[in-house]
């Protein structure tokens, strides 16, 4: 088990400088996540939800607003808040094991804590592929390796930026289940960005729906169903219709 992190975001504004002009991406976003909670950020592609994850990861400071992790302001990246990208971004020159060891190596813990690497690989079912190189892995396996690389750091907060977005649909369904099981067992806080309504409803306790860019929270839905959930649960099907209507997709609903 890990120390789950609680999040508190207030009045977050952010913009990109593009050709000398400011392009607003986030507008007055507030967000609270309880320690060990699971929140999905749902919105159209390119609306700015990924930017919010980068801010929480500490990769960039916001233009305005405050971000706090367990009450302390977020000023930079920290291994307790690990971001997992849509692409596995494994280093092609490193084996799966060496990729997973990245965080421990970066912090000089590889000698004392090296055993964690194999534990994490076993957890994601890749221990037999530890010596393989990324180009030898399938898309799902590569994303599992990226997950192992994140878990090695024993994060209190796992930031998932559409981590299943590029997988084939069967692998995707399987990994949704696996991520939920992992979250329940390990107890870390999860913040998931997705544009898949069903995925959000399956994996999160709360779903925040964002507007198109600049992103603001337009509605918040509590998904009060036990895990593991089933996609044909009538309650979820009704919620799905509700969310799609919020997003302005009445026809699709």
């Amino acid at each position: 088990m890990v120390n789950p992190i609680g999040l508190r975001l207030r009045g977050i504004h952010h913009a990109f400088a593009l050709k000398g002009q400011d392009l607003p991406v986030l507008e007055d976003v507030d967000l609270d996540v309880r320690p060990g909670g699971s929140v999905a950020l749902l919105g159209p592609s390119g609306c700015g939800k990924s930017t919010l994850l980068r801010l929480v990861a500490g990769l960039e400071p916001p233009r305005r607003g405050t971000l706090e992790a367990d009450g302390a302001p977020i000023t930079g990246p920290d291994p307790s808040r690990v971001l997992m990208f849509q692409d596995p971004t494994l280093y092609p020159w490193r084996s799966v094991r060496a990729n997973a060891a990245l965080g421990l190596e970066a912090r000089g813990l590889i000698r004392t804590e090296g055993a964690r690497v194999d534990d994490a690989l076993r957890l994601v079912g890749l221990h037999e592929f530890a010596e393989a190189y990324p180009h030898q892995l399938s898309g799902g396996m590569a994303q599992r390796a990226a997950l192992a690389r994140a878990l090695v750091n024993r994060p209190g907060l796992l930031l998932l930026d559409e981590p299943l977005g590029k997988l084939d649909s069967l692998t995707r369904l399987k990994m949704q289940e696996e991520l939920v099981a992992l979250w329940q067992r390990e107890g870390f806080t999860t913040l998931l960005v997705t544009h898949d309504v069903e995925e959000a409803l399956l994996m999160a306790e709360r779903v925040l729906v964002f507007s198109p860019r600049p992103a603001r929270v337009v509605s918040e839905i509590a998904v009060d169903r036990p895990f593991p959930r089933h996609r044909d649960d009538p309650h979820l099907v009704a919620l799905r219709r509700e969310v799609l209507e919020t997003l302005g997709l009445r026809e699709a609903a």
Binding site: R54, L59, P79, L83, F85, T89, L102, R107, R149
Partner: peptide, 13 residues
Amino acid sequence: AGSFYDVARTMGA
């Protein structure tokens, strides 16, 4: 790729 740096930075590099 910038993401290669981001990955390592989030892990404390």
